[in-house]
Amino acid sequence: MKLFYAFLLSGCASLQVYAQKLPDIQSSNVIAPNTVRVDGRNLEWNNFSAENKRTGLLYTISNDDKNLYLALKAISNETITKIFAGGISFSINTKGRKREDDANTITYPTITRNNVNRFGAGQGAQNRQRMGQNRPEQSQEQRDSATFEQRKTQLAAIKEIKIKGFNVADSLISIYNEYGIKAIGKMDEQKAYFCEIAIPLSTLELSVNDKKEIAYQIKLNGRQGGNFPMRANAGGGFGGGGNNRGGFGGGNNNAAQQDLMVATDFWGKYIIQK
């Protein structure tokens, strides 16, 4: 009987732990793992600090004596599609104010759309559409697999990081830059998007000895301006075809299309600690 009650109490405790949810915005300061390595592989951040419902992102902000880190993960196809449409902007206002205009900002990934725009232009697009109508319809699994592979290819081709502020005149810097700013994202085998960003505290004119409170913003930029072709049955990194869940092709995805065109963001506070 004692064994039964012990098992019952253990089960209740497990359910209580399972029921606990991550906060919407990270409220605690985190010391970065000693093993942290900005390589786009989720080896150190399995336990995220927050899960933001507005953006659909799991994330952790942390620091060590040299760098400020952002690790984030997107699981849903809708969120990943929005990331590939306009990237994620990570802004740090060292004055602690929730304002973008005087913040330092990193935007990643930056996907080149020249080939995408050419895909949807003129007679060539019509010819490709007719060719697509003659091909056997792909299964959902095949479309998801094609989207996954294209996203991996797009991320591997990125060679630049977009920045604003940091006392740097250039708006685009190489991923191998002299400032020590790092950003890399990859698709994992569960088809989730994972990204790591590292910013030297020196570029922010911060020090762990100051214990200074900063304000940060994480923003999904979405598709900004221009005439972006809404492709049917294309299954690429910018959303699936007309029947692909989470994509923005097809008449049943009007809400997803509208969300894709609007930036989504949130602000939080963080104290740099030793």
Rank of each mutant, 00 (worst) to 15 (best):
5 Y>M: 11
5 Y>K: 15
6 A>H: 15
9 L>F: 13
14 S>Y: 06
18 Y>Q: 14
19 A>K: 12
23 P>I: 10
24 D>K: 05
25 I>Q: 14
31 I>H: 14
31 I>K: 12
34 N>L: 15
35 T>Q: 14
38 V>S: 10
39 D>A: 00
43 L>A: 10
45 W>D: 10
49 S>Y: 15
50 A>H: 06
51 E>A: 02
51 E>G: 09
52 N>C: 00
57 L>E: 00
57 L>R: 01
59 Y>G: 01
63 N>A: 04
70 L>P: 02
75 I>L: 06
76 S>E: 13
77 N>C: 07
78 E>I: 09
85 A>L: 14
91 S>W: 02
92 I>S: 04
92 I>G: 05
92 I>P: 00
96 G>H: 14
96 G>Y: 09
97 R>Y: 13
97 R>C: 12
98 K>D: 13
103 A>Y: 00
105 T>Q: 03
105 T>F: 01
106 I>L: 01
106 I>Y: 04
106 I>C: 02
110 T>S: 10
111 I>G: 08
111 I>V: 12
112 T>Y: 07
114 N>I: 08
116 V>Q: 09
117 N>Q: 15
119 F>T: 10
122 G>Q: 14
122 G>N: 13
122 G>H: 13
123 Q>S: 11
123 Q>D: 09
125 A>R: 11
125 A>W: 08
130 R>G: 06
132 G>K: 07
134 N>T: 12
137 E>Y: 07
138 Q>V: 03
140 Q>F: 08
142 Q>E: 12
144 D>E: 11
149 E>S: 01
150 Q>I: 10
151 R>F: 05
155 L>D: 08
155 L>I: 09
157 A>N: 12
159 K>S: 13
161 I>V: 10
163 I>C: 01
168 V>G: 03
172 L>Y: 14
172 L>E: 12
174 S>A: 09
176 Y>Q: 14
177 N>M: 03
177 N>K: 02
177 N>Q: 01
178 E>Y: 11
178 E>I: 10
181 I>W: 08
185 G>W: 07
196 E>Q: 12
196 E>N: 02
196 E>W: 03
196 E>V: 04
201 L>S: 06
215 A>V: 03
217 Q>Y: 08
217 Q>V: 05
220 L>W: 05
221 N>R: 05
223 R>V: 11
226 G>C: 03
226 G>H: 06
228 F>L: 13
230 M>V: 14
231 R>H: 14
233 N>C: 04
234 A>T: 15
240 G>I: 02
241 G>L: 00
242 G>N: 15
242 G>W: 00
242 G>D: 09
243 N>T: 02
244 N>V: 11
248 F>R: 06
249 G>T: 00
250 G>Q: 03
251 G>N: 01
251 G>T: 09
255 A>R: 03
258 Q>C: 06
262 V>M: 10
266 F>C: 03
269 K>R: 10
272 I>G: 01
272 I>D: 02
